[in-house]
Write a protein that binds this DNA or RNA. Structure first.
Lengths: 260, 260
DNA sequence: CGGTTGATTGAGGCTGCTCAAAAGGTGTGG
DNA sequence: CCACACCTTTTGAGCAGCCTCAATCAACCG
């Protein structure tokens, strides 16, 4: 028996990292134990704190075990871009064998539980648990797909389409990690300024776009909580196809390919 | 002795994939031989041809050995986003152990030499050559950094800054793979419409932006060739920091991290 | 030589930005 | 409990960066 509230430093049986990696690769018991071990050297960070600062070269590997966070890049003149949103199971820093100074920062949105592993320990983990290495690898490829989708979003879509797409993607990801609220809504703990930084828009325009989506009875955003009223129509506006997020996967090799 | 022009199917001693991977990991002789082997089952593709179409699930792994190409996403209504530019050594398709249908297409810019490996063969390559697996991994992380930078570019920069950044990045990458021309310029075989598709701009505006950069004596673009007149000033306009492209690397683990 | 593709230029319009101010909300201290 | 500060949201007015549409020009090619 375990109490339902996981106390800060206990390794809960419900490890987000394990849950995520199991979407990509069958983990043996030993793999799971190793991952649970990480949760022993973890810390809680309050909301709106910097976890990684641009140029950070500490080399630590920082899996996000609980809470929400984001990667961002700040400019001297105040411009700011949110590069990706992080859910439990994602990595805050680089996840390769080699350590490289980051060209981005990471901040918490909510209170976060973060493990801290030395690069050395991480490399050892990969070497002694190939299944973990493989799963992390595949996870990185999905992350890449998300980045590509953001590029398309920023490059080609209008403000309201962009917003719709962000909300669709976030809805899917939050559902995937079991974070839907009772009424089917979900957290998105950003201010309108924050949404602007994610979408390449000003907060003023974000406000107007949200009003429009609300007026069209598609979605409401209030106090960091989103409720989607008509997912199908929102998806149509966003031209959202969730395939890139899924870990669905085909294990095979095959023959021809169209070379038109 | 080997003739200087590499004929289509001969494995040239100068394999772009090897050159690239060696930036990330020390390859043993056997690793290099295995990579050279790939060049035996390769094909030449003419310019402006589709290599991978969206939704492709063939599962083939397609390293680009020679030539230039790009990843892109097309919309039904004609909008089009170029997601990344590919140089020799890059992968055209997915490069994981698992095969997933692509949500993008790949087209050639110039004539391209492309190896074709079954997913099965690729997995076997990774399993039997850990150094290759590691190098591919690190390469994927650099690619991720490029995607992040494009997001920042599209989200926050004005048209002329975006253009400047693209040109700086491309200059660096072309230099890194030994593709600078005699006068220090380099190929960028895109039409102005193509540049627009990469930058989220219309070709009309691309044209005006290029005129402005030319008028400011920063750079000239003609016939798919770029000449940069004042790299320092261009870099300042673009706010370009090449660090994210480099394979420069620190092998260590280390202690503290700012937790402001 | 006509046909096609890409570059260039112009005019006008819309999306999204800037600047500014007011309105709500929340926490703090008196 | 009110006053105050601070932050976020909301609204308005005006502007501009970039787009749309359209036409011309240049280069290439069968």
């Amino acid at each position: 028996m375990r109490s339902p509230n996981d106390s800060p430093t206990s390794s809960s049986g419900d490890n987000a990292l394990i849950r995520k990696l199991e979407r990509f690769s069958a983990l043996a018991c030993g793999d799971r134990l190793a991952l649970d071990d990480l949760a022993r050297t973890c810390e809680w960070v309050p909301p709106d704190r910097s976890i990684v600062t641009e140029g950070d070269a500490s080399g630590a590997v920082l899996p996000l075990l609980e809470g929400l966070a984001y990667r961002h890049k700040d400019f001297r003149d105040g411009r700011r871009q949110i590069i990706s949103l992080l859910v439990p199971g994602d990595m805050c820093g680089g996840h390769g064998r080699l350590s490289r100074p980051t060209n981005y920062g990471v901040r918490t949105l909510t209170r976060c539980k973060i493990a801290r592993i030395s690069r050395q320990g991480f490399v050892h983990l990969l070497d002694s648990h190939p299944a973990i290495a493989e799963a992390l690898n595949e996870a990185a490829l999905v992350e890449e797909a998300v980045l590509r989708t953001w590029i398309v979003n920023l490059g080609q879509r209008h403000a309201h389409e962009r917003m719709a797409h962000l909300l669709c993607e976030w809805a899917q990801r939050m559902a995937d990690c079991g974070r839907l609220l009772a009424h089917g809504g979900f957290e998105l703990p950003l201010t309108q300024q924050g949404l602007g930084a994610a979408l390449g828009l000003t907060s003023v325009h974000v406000n107007r776009v949200l009003q429009r989506l609300r007026a069209e009875n598609l979605v409401a955003f209030q106090n960091g909580t989103v409720r989607i009223f008509d997912f199908d129509r929102l998806r149509a506006v966003a031209d959202f196809d969730p395939a890139y997020l899924s870990a669905r996967v085909l294990r095979e090799a095959s023959p021809a390919l169209p070379m038109d």
